[in-house]
Write a protein that binds this DNA or RNA. Structure first.
Length: 287
DNA sequence: ATGGGTACCTGTCTGC
DNA sequence: TGCAGACAGGTACCCA
């Protein structure tokens, strides 16, 4: 589910509330995508720092404010580092003062002195992983392959053109891959391609510079509009307050097979590319 | 290097 | 109503 807008909306909904909290307990449920990578007990006593986002990952900085001179304490607690979180296909985070007993899909609780951050993830494609730092260890390994942030000024039509002109994949796949620009999953890749008037099956090496410029603008504005509307709630996305998103209500193509295009009235088509559904308007979007 | 397929896991919906 | 099968927002990894 969660693409960049949902992850960003989640971050904004709890990041500043949890900052400064002290971890008092950690509860783990069923295994997630990867093992936590640290004894949960070693997180107790650490203090939560800034919550940041890279692509669809969230980084929860955790620091120790014990005196480093105390060897005994250093053994007890982990040194500074953080948790890298991913919501996978079905994950959501809640941050509440009082948590209910964990349900069958609640697989991680970070209990602090001011509230509990809980990951709920029915499909368990999500992850919570310890890393010594954002630029080392596991986080580095996972994040270093990611493309540029869509809101970064270096993401523009010229750079997009340069990145895809030698590749012979369908443009939809190039967007989805995340190696060029991060953040657009299936919904927003479809919506951005509609906004740019590009058929999702168009080969990336055949796109002109002008169309790449339109596409870069479309990716950025589509993701920004979704963030502003609180993300998309297709089934179960909620921010950390439990609020649903509303972007799905104004989707132009995603999930609208057979419905009239909001621009020209033509029936929206659905095709499968690399085992993923793509929706598009055959009249408004050209190869 | 590139691109294609597989894998992870469970809930929900569709059609017979 | 029951049940098999398709399908779902992500992405790392393996192989040709």
């Amino acid at each position: 589910m969660p693409e960049l807008p949902e992850v960003e909306v989640t971050r904004r909904s709890f990041g500043n509330r949890i900052e400064g909290a002290r971890v008092s307990a950690v509860r783990t449920g069923k295994p997630l995508r990867w093992p936590l990578g640290i004894d949960p007990q070693r997180l107790v006593g650490l203090r939560v720092g800034t919550v940041s986002r890279r692509g669809k990952y969230l980084w929860l900085a955790l620091t120790s404010d014990e005196h480093p001179s105390s060897a005994a304490l250093a053994e007890q607690h982990a040194a500074s580092g953080g948790l890298l979180l991913h919501l996978g296909m079905s994950g959501s985070l809640a941050f509440v003062e009082q948590v209910s007993p964990p349900g069958p899909h609640d697989h991680f609780d970070l209990v602090t002195d001011i509230g509990t951050l809980r990951l709920t993830d029915p499909r368990r494609f999500g992850a919570v992983v310890w890393s010594e730092g954002l630029y080392e260890g596991t986080a580095l390994r996972l994040l270093s392959k990611l493309g540029v942030e869509p809101f970064d000024p270096t993401f523009n039509g010229d750079n997009l053109y340069a990145a895809i002109k030698s590749r012979r994949v369908a443009i939809k796949g190039a967007l989805l891959g995340g190696g060029i620009v991060v953040g657009a999953g299936n919904i927003y890749a479809c919506e951005a391609l509609f906004a740019a008037g590009i058929d999702p099956r168009a080969r990336s090496d055949r796109l002109s510079l002008a169309r790449c410029r339109r596409l870069a603008d479309a990716v950025r504005s589509t993701l920004q509009a979704a963030v502003d509307l609180g993300g998309s709630t297709l089934r179960d996305f909620r921010d950390s307050h439990g609020m649903a998103g509303e972007y799905q209500l104004q989707a132009h193509v995603y999930g609208r097979e057979g419905a009239p295009c909001r621009t020209c009235g033509t029936s929206i088509r659905r095709v499968v590319q690399a085992q993923r559904a793509s929706y598009f308007c055959p009249k408004c979007q050209k190869r």
